[in-house]
């Protein structure tokens, strides 16, 4: 997955294991989750509830809400979330959240 990344990472932080949409990923601990997912080759973060169009991070500053992911049953902005060990991330409300 890493080799497909369109991004270069300058830093070499220790990595932790997270799960995104069922796939195990190794991301830099303490990193910005949106940046780390993109660097790991994730393009599509979610599909919109209106048309199902694919979306990824756009503003990286908490303003646009395009990088929404779901963590512990709550939608969160990936660009405002820090990578921690064992984080389980799903695509927002894909399989019916709040159950």
């Amino acid at each position: 997955m890493k080799t497909a990344s369109p991004f270069l990472e300058l830093d070499n932080e220790p990595r932790v294991n997270v799960v995104f949409d069922g796939n195990a990923l190794s991301l830099p601990e303490g990193a910005n989750l949106a940046a780390a997912l993109m660097a790991a080759g994730v393009n599509v973060f979610r599909h919109t509830p209106v048309s199902g169009a694919p979306r990824g991070p756009f503003c990286m500053m908490g303003a646009c809400f395009d990088c929404l992911v779901e963590i512990d049953g709550t939608t969160k902005q990936a660009c405002m979330t820090v990578v921690t060990d064992g984080l389980e991330i799903t695509r927002a409300h894909r399989d019916g959240a709040l159950t």
Partner: peptide, 20 residues
């Protein structure tokens, strides 16, 4: 936010609108 279907009928307290 828009959510998967979770409320079937409306009430005076809450309803789920057609957009979710």
């Amino acid at each position: 936010e828009k959510l998967p279907k979770m409320i079937n009928r409306p009430s005076l307290i809450a309803r789920q609108v057609d957009e979710g």
